[in-house]
Amino acid sequence: MTRVTTGLNDYRYVASLYIDHPTVDPDAITRGMPIKPDRICRIGDPKRTPREGFYDRTHWSVKLQTPADGDVAEFLSMVFERLDSSRALLTELADTGGRAEIFIGLFADRCCDFEMPPTLLANLASLSLGLRLDYYGPDRSPPTP
């Protein structure tokens, strides 16, 4: 977990990359990515939850290593540079019914802010990457590493 204490800001964040697709085998995703997944679920596998049933889509996810320092925008720029080599795969997944998103869990005890420049957002969009920001206020404890 990264902590940012710049100006009036005091927040922590964690991040992950999540991909799902209606038909692609997760091994094909793994072969095309510069990072290895922490978790995969194949179509047809039994769910690992109390709910009965089977996965109807491929799920592929990895917890992303956040830097010791650096705000969210700097981190996302590094993620873009790392995933740019997988542009063709990510575009193909999006074009065939899949989705890929970067999840940022933001933990703060008070108001905080940061800017994501248009160029950064355009870079992420060029990789067909969505961005999900979840805010956890003072009543939520951050996960332990």
Rank of each mutant, 00 (worst) to 15 (best):
R57D: 13
V14Q: 12
L17H: 03
S77N: 13
V24S: 10
M78G: 15
D84L: 13
R48Q: 14
T6R: 15
G7N: 07
A122G: 06
T96H: 09
Q65W: 02
H21N: 09
G130C: 04
R51E: 13
A100E: 08
E81V: 06
L124T: 01
I35C: 04
C41A: 15
R110K: 12
A68G: 11
L83Y: 06
T66Q: 02
P143R: 07
L129V: 06
T30W: 09
F114Q: 02
D139S: 12
G105F: 00
P118A: 14
Y55N: 08
P37V: 08
G32H: 09
I35T: 09
G98E: 08
I104H: 03
L131R: 08
W60G: 14
E101N: 14
M116H: 00
D27L: 15
A122W: 04
G130M: 11
D10F: 00
E81K: 15
P50C: 05
G105M: 00
S128K: 15
L120M: 08
P143A: 02
D45K: 03
T58S: 10
A28F: 10
L121S: 09
D56Q: 14
D38V: 03
M33A: 12
D20W: 11
E92T: 09
P67L: 00
R110W: 03
I102N: 02
F54N: 13
G98C: 08
R42T: 08
Y18H: 13
V72T: 09
D71M: 03
H21F: 09
E74R: 13
T58R: 14
P117D: 05
A73E: 13
L17W: 04
R31K: 15
P50M: 14
A73W: 11
P145F: 08
I40E: 14
P37F: 03
D71H: 02
L17I: 14
G97W: 04
L121G: 02
P117L: 01
D38I: 01
L89I: 04
I43R: 12
D56K: 14
P118E: 09
I43Y: 07
T5I: 13
M1T: 05
R140N: 07
W60D: 11
A88I: 11
V14W: 06
L124N: 01
P37D: 05
D27I: 12
P37T: 06
S16W: 03
I102G: 04
T144D: 13
D134W: 05
L93I: 12
M33C: 12
Y11E: 02
E74A: 12
P34R: 08
I102P: 06
A100H: 05
F54V: 12
P142S: 01
R12S: 12
D71F: 01
T66H: 04
C41G: 03
L93C: 08
M78D: 15
A125V: 02
D95G: 09
L120E: 02
V72N: 07
T66I: 01
